[in-house]
Structures are given as structure tokens and as C-alpha cells.
Design a protein around this nucleic acid. Sequence first.
DNA 1: GAGACATACAACCGTATGGTTGTATCGAGA
DNA 2: TCTCGATACAACCATACGGTTGTATGTCTC
Lengths: 113, 113
Amino acid sequence: MQVAPPDFDRMFGALADATRRDIVRRAIDAEEGVAELAEHYPMSFAAVQKHVAILERAGLVTKVRIGRRKVVRTNLEGLRVARRLLDQYEEVWRGRLGRMAQLVGEDRKEPPR
Amino acid sequence: MQVAPPDFDRMFGALADATRRDIVRRAIDAEEGVAELAEHYPMSFAAVQKHVAILERAGLVTKVRIGRRKVVRTNLEGLRVARRLLDQYEEVWRGRLGRMAQLVGEDRKEPPR
DNA sequence: GAGACATACAACCGTATGGTTGTATCGAGA
DNA sequence: TCTCGATACAACCATACGGTTGTATGTCTC
């Protein structure tokens, strides 16, 4: 079996909603089922269920059966995948600085006296 | 003037599109105007312009006039704001681990012999 | 000032998204 | 096995989104 490649569209799309971000935060404690989560928000159970499903497809949460409930648990590794992409941009940025220094010339590193 | 509070919906929403993420990456070098950017993608100039506008409203890029063009430059600080939110989740996670250890009891830190 | 290049913006179209209600499935307990 | 609590899923609706084309605004260059 293959590990699915990260789907950044889905990941960032899932994070682009305040309700879903709040679910992610709450589900770090991995204590609540879908119905319990739903009580925190001014919308129907079905709507929250959809949000959880979107987070699940994005790899940001998982559900584990406990008794007759399914407890939602955030998948830290998923969050890290997203974070890593942002880190990459930062690295490209530093690379740019390096290239600029080269273009300008080494001598700029130590100012002329 | 006030600094606008970060709008995570817009930020993550802007990042949830491969074309826009590519623009962010390209614009780190801050060399291309909108028209030049548009040449990289299989869509109209106007479509790319819209993508840039979305990134701009999300605070992820800025445009600076250079001659008759407007050069797109990615705003690293915007990316950092997004990254920081993901870091916060990580911190909450660590906090949870701390609380769990407390619940279980200190003695678990050093296993009985 | 005229012409050309670069950007901006409005109107429109198909599809995706976020919400609703209603119905079906599944697991636990009497 | 019957029932209840929890989850799942389908159908539907309004609005947002990603793309198009067409027109308007700026700004260099001659």
C-alpha cells in the first residue's frame, strides 16, 4: 500500500474555515464524538459532520470508534505536512538572499574601508 | 491607521489553490509583473490577475509599481502568520501531553523498578 | 497627443461549497 | 430482538469560486 501524497489543496482548503479550525483545535484533546463537537457550534449536526469529513479527507483528523461514538482526533502529522510547505517558502526566500549576495558580489559581505 | 488582524479564512483559502501557491513561490524572487506571471499558466491574464488579487487581500503578496508594470512580491510576514497558527496547534498538543502526564501521575515519569 | 503595453474591473457561466432536512445504518443494552 | 443513541448519507438550496470575454484606466515612448 502507498501513502497518499499530500493534497495541499484539500489541506489548506480544510483550514480555510473558522469552524473547521476550531474543530482541529478541540480535537487535539481527542475526547469528543461528532455529536458532542456539534454542540459547540450554531449549526446542525449534519453540517458539523460534513466539516469533520472534509478535515478527514484532508488528512487533518481521524476518527476512532469508542463505544457507540466515533471520537475525532486531530492528526498532528497532517498539520506538520502543511507547516513544512510554508517552511519551504521560507527556505526559498533565504536562497534568494544568498543569490542576491552573489549577484552583488562577495565584497559586499565585508564593507570597503 | 490600524494593522488588520490576520484573516485566516482568506489566508488558508488563498493557499488552497495550486496556481496561487506557485505564484507565491515565484514571487519570492519579486521579478515578474502580472503579465509575465500569467505566461506560466494555461489560463487568461485576467484569471491570473484575480489569483494575485486574492493573494493580495489575504496579505500574502504585495504589488509594487516598477515602470509601467506592477511587480508581485510575496509577503513573507504573511506566510509566517499562517505558519504561526499551525505552530500554536503543536503547542496545544504538547500542553495536552503535559496534562495527560499529570493525570496519570508523576510517578509514571520514572518507571517503577 | 497618439499609440501601445500593462493593469484593472465588470458581467457572465458552470461548478463547488456550506448550510438545511429527511432517511438509513450501526452498535449497546434491556 | 427491539429500541435508542450516534453516525452516515442523499437531496436540495443559496451563494462563493474559478474561469471566460470585453471594456476602461494608466503610463511609457515617440
